[in-house]
Every structure is written in structure tokens, then in C-alpha cells.
């Protein structure tokens, strides 16, 4: 009892702790980041919420307060629901594709293969190249009339696919291109995670007679969980915010079949100048991402025990 009291009294009182030189130094170090966060993240969120309550055209100096009308209009807007559906389809298509492909290639590259550094670089290359350039190349490749993919498909007797021209295929094409572009990024994260797993766990498992599947299931996956969690949250948030890949490849078409919520927000805000309505859609998306990310953290929360 005595020892407990001693250890507690050794800690500075809570009010004093704030003013220690260490705490002051910590706040000072955090100050630049906090300032940036406050001005470029927190403040715009509140500004967007304020704009959502107004009939606010771009750079409007005298916006009209309209309460929740923008929200009421948004929930009746077929285009918004279509965009939301497209966003979810895109996310469901891209995230598992990216993560599973990255995991498979990370496992292969984690083996002591010759030239794995080169392959690692090759898979990461699409992340480094400007997407505008990649989109132009993909548009040419996928063109069913003058593209290589269309040409070799016809040579092989495969059915002609209109890819980016068809409302039925455009989303599939965008998903596949996005997986190609981003799986290398996740591969690097997962590979780093794999290389952090001590060999001793596998040696002990081998001594216990575990096979490869059991080693993967009971050692690799649990110990890779922090890396997987990061890759997954990052991939989900990026997919829900998909804009550049869609805008450059299809501009949301054909027939709105690839229009995601962020593309819709851009259109409303910067083409139709309706910033109030665009802010409303952006806030709803913010809420959706917030809830999904919280859910992911809860389901996949990091536990070291396995």
C-alpha cells in the first residue's frame, strides 16, 4: 500500500503536468502541424457545414440562409444516389482487389527471390507516374477500334468490349485500372509488415508441425494486422474519395455510370457554382467515411495476442 502511494505521489499533479518544460516542448513541436490541421482541415469542415445551410454560389458575398433545404433536396436527388451507389461499387471493387493482389505479391516478394528489389520497384512504378499520363495510355489501350487490347482480343476471337465507352463496362474498366495503379503502394506497406515478422515464430511453428496454410493463418495474418489495417483504411478512404482517376478517364460518364460522389461534388461546386449544395453532398460523404472508418477500427483493432 505504501509503495503504491509512493509511486502515485511520484507523478506530478495533472495541472502541473501541462506546464512542465517537456510538455511545453511537445506542444511547440506539434504547433506547426496543429496550425496546418486547424486551417486546412478543421476550419474548412466547419465552413462547409455553414455553407451547406445556405444558398451559396461560388464566391457569393451575400448567401441566403435556407436551413436544411440543401439536405432535403440532396436526399431527393437521383443523381446523388446514383453517385453514392457508384462510389460504393467502386470501393467494393477496388479495395479487396488492391489488398488481395498486394498481399499475394508481397508474400511472393518476401521469399528470397533473385531481383525482388527490381520487381518491387516495377510494381510501385504506376504510383509514381502522373495519372493524367497513365489515363491517356489506358484510353488508347482500351479503345476497341484502335487500341491494342481491342486488337488482340479480336485476334484471339474474344468478344469485343467497349470498355470506357459503354455504361455497362466503364466502371469495371475504371476499377481494374485503379487496382493496377494502387496495388504497388499497398504491396510496399504489406512487404514492410512481413519483413518485420520474426523468423523465430515460423521456426517454432515448424517444430510444432504446422503446415504453410496454418503458418499463414495463425502467424502471418495476425502479425500483419497493423499493416493490413493501415492499408485497408487508407484504401477505403481513397476509394470513397475517388476523383482524379474517374475525372481523367471518364469525367463520370458515359451516362453517369462512373460518376462518384466527389465527381458530383466537383460538378455542382465548380461547374454549376452551387457551393452550398456541393458542400452538403461533401458533408454527407464525410459522415459516411467517418462511420465506415470507425467501424473498420473497431472490427480490426490491433491486438498483439493471437
Amino acid at each position: 500500500m505504501q509503495s503504491t502511494q509512493t509511486s502515485v505521489s511520484a507523478q506530478p499533479p495533472r495541472s502541473q503536468f501541462r506546464f512542465t518544460s517537456q510538455a511545453r516542448a511537445a506542444w511547440l513541436f506539434m504547433l506547426p502541424s496543429l496550425t496546418i490541421l486547424a486551417f486546412f482541415i478543421v476550419l474548412p469542415i466547419f465552413q462547409a457545414a455553414w455553407m451547406a445551410l445556405h444558398d451559396w454560389t461560388l464566391a457569393d458575398l451575400n448567401p441566403t440562409f435556407i436551413g436544411l433545404k440543401n439536405f432535403a433536396d440532396l436526399f431527393k436527388d437521383d443523381r446523388f444516389w446514383n453517385a453514392l451507389q457508384n462510389t460504393l461499387v467502386y470501393t467494393i471493387g477496388v479495395v479487396p482487389g488492391q489488398i488481395i493482389l498486394a498481399l499475394v505479391f508481397a508474400l511472393i516478394l518476401n521469399a528470397r527471390l533473385k531481383g525482388r528489389t527490381v520487381f518491387r520497384g516495377i510494381y510501385f512504378l504506376p504510383v509514381l507516374v502522373s495519372f493524367a499520363v497513365e489515363a491517356i495510355v489506358w484510353r488508347f489501350l482500351l479503345d476497341p477500334d484502335i487500341g491494342y487490347i481491342g486488337y488482340y482480343s479480336s485476334v484471339l476471337g474474344l468478344p469485343r468490349i467497349e470498355w470506357l465507352r459503354s455504361p455497362d463496362w466503364a466502371m469495371t474498366a475504371v476499377i481494374l485500372i485503379s487496382i493496377w495503379r494502387w496495388f504497388g503502394f499497398n504491396l510496399v506497406i504489406l512487404l514492410a509488415g512481413l519483413q518485420g515478422i520474426s523468423e523465430s515464430y515460423y521456426e517454432a511453428a515448424e517444430v510444432d508441425g504446422a503446415n504453410e496454410v496454418q503458418k499463414f493463418r495463425f502467424i502471418t495474418l495476425p502479425l500483419l494486422r497493423p499493416s493490413l489495417l493501415f492499408a485497408l483504411i487508407n484504401a477505403v478512404i481513397s476509394a470513397l474519395q475517388a476523383f482524379d482517376q474517374i475525372y481523367v478517364l471518364t469525367r463520370g460518364g458515359p451516362m453517369f455510370s462512373t460518376e462518384t460522389v466527389v465527381v458530383y461534388v466537383y460538378r455542382e461546386g465548380f461547374i454549376n457554382f452551387d457551393m452550398g449544395y456541393a458542400s452538403t453532398a461533401a458533408l454527407v460523404l464525410f459522415g459516411i467515411i467517418f462511420v465506415i472508418t470507425l467501424g473498420q477500427l473497431r472490427i480490426l483493432r490491433y491486438q498483439e495476442s493471437f
Binding site: T117, G121, L128, A132, V133
Partner: peptide, 28 residues
Amino acid sequence: MRKSSLLFSLVLVVMLLLSACAGAAPAQ
């Protein structure tokens, strides 16, 4: 292996620079 990594890194940097230049050029 070390030499090949170095060479590959160099190639990557060159390609990155090229893509950055290209990214600034064509748009609509």
C-alpha cells in the same frame, strides 16, 4: 545486386522526372 539496385533506382528517378514533365504538358 547492389549495383543493379542502384541502376534501377536511377532509372526510376529518370522516369519520375520524365513523368512529372509529361504531367505538366498535355491536358485538354
